[in-house]
């Protein structure tokens, strides 16, 4: 395996596992993963609670609002961790992130603006939480693609 092949191979898998880049990147990546996991758990627990599957909360009560806002606060922590990663990483990684975010944002806008047309054309109605996964998925796939492109 040549040095370039080795660099490509390790960079790709390190990107997949979040261990790519400088020591600062790896530290910031761990923070992002921790916040993302906390967000996923918080979102799931809040949804189950508000649907009355864990315990019953009166709609409109302050307790229900607190439960609904907890994952929002955790999400802000995730955004802060991601911004910290982008500010701390090197210029190529910033370019990769910018391009991946452009694709993710574009996919989100495309979906939001065109989904109604697709529904009229015969596509099944989509749950808003499923629709939110499209830009996230596009962002993740784009990161892998652009990392591969600049290998």
């Amino acid at each position: 395996m040549t040095e370039r092949d080795e660099a490509t191979h390790t960079t790709f898998w390190k990107t997949v596992t979040g261990a790519c880049g400088t020591p600062t990147d790896r530290r910031n990546n761990r923070r992002i993963v921790a916040w993302a996991l906390a967000w996923a758990v918080g979102l799931t627990l809040a949804a189950q609670t508000l649907k009355g599957r864990i315990f019953h909360l009166e709609a409109g009560s302050w307790e229900a609002w607190v439960v609904a806002l907890v994952p929002v606060v955790v999400c802000l922590g995730f955004i802060h961790a991601y911004l910290r990663f982008v500010r701390g990483t090197d210029e190529l990684q910033r370019l990769i992130q910018l391009q991946a975010l452009a694709v993710g944002f574009g996919a989100g806008v495309l979906l939001l603006l065109h989904w109604e047309l697709f529904e009229f054309a015969g596509m099944p109605a989509m749950d808003p939480s499923d629709a939110a996964m499209v830009p996230v998925f596009a962002w993740i796939v784009s990161q892998l693609y652009f990392t591969w492109r600049y290998r």
């Binding site: 960079t11 880049g21 400088t22 210029e91 190529l92």
Partner: peptide
């Protein structure tokens, strides 16, 4: 910088 960046610079990408 990351090793990927050095590689991308060397290969002119």
């Amino acid at each position: 910088v990351s090793r990927q960046t050095v590689n991308a610079l060397e290969t002119g990408k």
